[in-house]
């Protein structure tokens, strides 16, 4: 899969609330509620307002969190980005 470039939903369109170990996210554009677990909210936060591909996201996450160091995180992050795109929370840029 090509390393696609995405942009996250503008922060003012999202309302994110932590409920215990779940994060619930309300998207004011779609009126949809999304349930999330790690690392989805972290990915969205890491993307900020920039155009990002899996590599940039991995780099930013690594700077903030310990990614465990076992294996390449890129394919996993690319998969998560595609899931976020299906939910409409990131869009190809």
């Amino acid at each position: 899969m090509a390393d696609r470039v995405y942009r996250a939903a503008p922060p003012e369109t999202l309302r994110i609330e932590a409920l215990g170990d779940l994060t619930v996210l309300f998207d004011r554009r779609s009126m949809q509620t999304h349930l999330m677990i790690q690392p989805m909210p972290e990915i969205l936060a890491a993307m900020a307002d920039d155009r990002c591909n899996a590599a940039t996201v991995a780099e930013r996450l690594a700077a903030r969190f310990d990614l465990g160091g076992e294996g390449d995180p890129m394919p996993l992050i690319a998969e998560r980005l595609a899931e976020l795109a299906a939910m409409g929370l990131v869009a190809e840029a």
């Binding site: 409920l19 215990g20 779940l22 619930v24 509620t33 349930l35």
Partner: peptide, 21 residues
Amino acid sequence: GEGEAFVRLTEASTNYVALGE
């Protein structure tokens, strides 16, 4: 937990989606 209660109550509500934010 709060998360599970949230999920269960969305399922127990007939108008949760229609109410929006």
